[in-house]
Amino acid sequence: MAAGGDHGSPDSYRSPLASRYASPEMCFVFSDRYKFRTWRQLWLWLAEAEQTLGLPITDEQIQEMKSNLENIDFKMAAEEEKRLRHDVMAHVHTFGHCCPKAAGIIHLGATSCYVGDNTDLIILRNALDLLLPKLARVISRLADFAKERASLPTLGFTHFQPAQLTTVGKRCCLWIQDLCMDLQNLKRVRDDLRFRGVKGTTGTQASFLQLFEGDDHKVEQLDKMVTEKAGFKRAFIITGQTYTRKVDIEVLSVLASLGASVHKICTDIRLLANLKEMEEPFEKQQIGSSAMPYKRNPMRSERCCSLARHLMTLVMDPLQTASVQWFERTLDDSANRRICLAEAFLTADTILNTLQNISEGLVVYPKVIERRIRQELPFMATENIIMAMVKAGGSRQDCHEKIRVLSQQAASVVKQEGGDNDLIERIQVDAYFSPIHSQLDHLLDPSSFTGRASQQVQRFLEEEVYPLLKPYESVMKVKAELCL
């Protein structure tokens, strides 16, 4: 049975990233139509530049190519590739079939990587351009969430054990800070992308030097003109047959890092959902379990974690691919890159769409948070109580021993009897502590235990987050809708 299948058929496997999760716009960027249309555009740009620099290419040939950029006979191309065992030459023939007058000058002087690699770089750039505003929107939604809850005390956790208090907004800023680093890295790697350009079979530009009869300047002009037509500021000066596969490492490393950030955020949300302090959106008709109707599973956060793990592992592909590119190139890269580049971007696209949807509907339960604080705060307040007693004339050592005994009794009630923490009640009825009984409410005010959390939130948002989001103001209103 021949390899390949009808990918629109229910009898043929289709990647869930495309069929179930990723956005239509990201799927289109990695589609065959987008790819092969870009090949034709690159052939047109090459012909236009070659004509401008004096090669015998007519206006009629150029116009014929322009008129057929979208006229792609995919069936013919597939048949040609089956016959020739070469995808680029299959599309040269297919393009030439609908451009008979231009057929002889299509791909003039070029090698397969002229269309293959340059198209990949265009796709990487455009895919990054799709991700950047999506990530900015996630940051914006979380920034709104953090600002609104900047002063809401909550129990902090280290080692997932109760620690000092923080605020809900401050905790959210930990998430935002990681995503801001990801946004900066995505922008950097996007701006650092260079075009492969017009380089020939081993990167020496020998074929173009021959076409222009040894004119170095025209060869350099050709490279520059096509690079500018493709919208790049610069091209690699040095290439082998391909652009260095280190570029793929750079791009997928940034995406993998984004995956790590999203995994951490969504894990926190899942843990908070278990504590009943916070939940992701839950639709009115949504079913959490087929057997347990009360369940409210954090399905979206779980999906993000599941896909983020996949995204983090994909960076190993370009690392290994770059390491086995012998001399000017081997074909070890080809099949692998067809999979890992598309999957990385479709996965990143999915987790950003999902995280935006989550961040637009996060639900906080202040009463649950308050109750958990009441359970733990008495123990945390013991040092403040000791200091207040010393100020009232008591002995630190005597007070410490009193607190120690009462704390152990209260802990026994919590752990052995399943009761509430009654340390404060014990202190309130103990005559030894009568000098500070009137101060206990103040000493137990949760806001006095959150330090500068709310001020940190305000400063972080104003100095770091809002300036970073400013270039994306025009796209901030787009909502994230999930079908599944």
Rank of each mutant, 00 (worst) to 15 (best):
G5L: 08
G5R: 07
G5M: 15
D6W: 09
P10C: 15
P10M: 15
Y21E: 00
S31R: 05
D32K: 11
R37Y: 15
R40C: 03
Q41P: 01
L42M: 07
L42T: 10
L42S: 04
L44I: 08
A47V: 08
E50M: 07
Q51P: 00
T52H: 14
L53H: 05
P56K: 12
I57A: 05
D59N: 12
D59F: 11
E60S: 13
E60Q: 13
M65T: 07
M65I: 15
N68W: 08
N68S: 10
E70R: 14
E70G: 13
N71L: 11
I72S: 07
F74L: 14
K75R: 12
M76T: 11
H86E: 00
D87A: 02
A90V: 10
G96P: 00
H97S: 10
A103K: 14
G104W: 09
S112N: 04
V115F: 00
D117R: 00
D117A: 00
N118E: 00
T119V: 14
T119D: 05
D120S: 06
L128F: 08
L130N: 10
L131T: 09
L132D: 14
L135K: 07
L135S: 10
A136E: 10
R137N: 14
V138P: 05
I139A: 09
I139S: 10
I139Y: 07
A143N: 09
F145G: 06
F145I: 04
A146V: 07
A146G: 08
A150R: 12
L152S: 08
T154R: 00
T154H: 08
L155M: 05
G156D: 00
F157S: 08
F157A: 11
T158K: 03
T158G: 00
H159P: 00
L165V: 10
L174C: 12
L179R: 02
L183F: 08
L186F: 13
L186T: 13
K187W: 09
R190T: 13
D191K: 07
D192P: 02
D192T: 15
R194C: 10
R196W: 02
G197E: 02
G200R: 01
T201F: 01
T202G: 13
Q205E: 02
L209S: 11
L209E: 13
L209N: 08
Q210Y: 01
L211N: 14
F212S: 06
G214N: 13
K218W: 10
V219T: 10
E220H: 11
Q221A: 14
K224W: 10
M225H: 12
M225L: 14
T227G: 10
T227F: 07
K233Q: 08
F236N: 06
I238M: 08
T239R: 01
Q241H: 00
T242G: 06
R245Y: 01
K246Q: 03
K246N: 03
E250P: 07
L252F: 09
S257I: 08
G259C: 05
S261K: 01
C266N: 08
D268Q: 06
A273K: 00
N274Y: 08
K276V: 05
E277S: 04
E277F: 04
E280A: 04
E283P: 01
Q285S: 13
I287R: 02
G288A: 09
A291R: 02
M292G: 01
P293L: 02
K295Q: 03
K295Y: 00
N297L: 03
S301E: 06
R303H: 01
C305S: 12
H310R: 14
M312G: 04
T313Q: 10
L319W: 02
Q320W: 09
E328D: 06
R329L: 03
R338I: 02
R338W: 01
A344K: 01
F345M: 11
F345Y: 08
L346K: 05
D349V: 06
T354S: 15
I358G: 05
I358Q: 05
I358A: 15
V364E: 02
V364N: 04
P366L: 04
P366V: 05
K367G: 10
R371L: 01
F379H: 08
F379I: 05
M380W: 01
N384F: 05
N384V: 10
M389L: 08
V390D: 03
G393S: 06
G393C: 07
S395D: 15
C399M: 06
E401G: 12
Q409P: 03
A411Y: 05
A411I: 08
S412F: 15
V413M: 13
K415N: 05
K415H: 05
G419F: 07
N421H: 07
D422L: 07
R426Y: 10
R426P: 00
D430L: 07
S434R: 13
P435F: 06
H437L: 06
Q439P: 04
D441I: 08
L443N: 04
D445N: 13
D445M: 14
P446G: 06
P446C: 05
S447R: 14
S448V: 14
S448T: 12
T450M: 06
T450D: 02
R452H: 07
F460H: 07
L461Q: 04
L461V: 14
E462L: 15
E463V: 11
E463F: 14
V465K: 03
Y466V: 13
K470D: 15
P471T: 15
E473K: 15
E473T: 14
K477A: 11
V478T: 14
K479S: 14
A480D: 14
L482H: 06
L482G: 07
C483E: 13
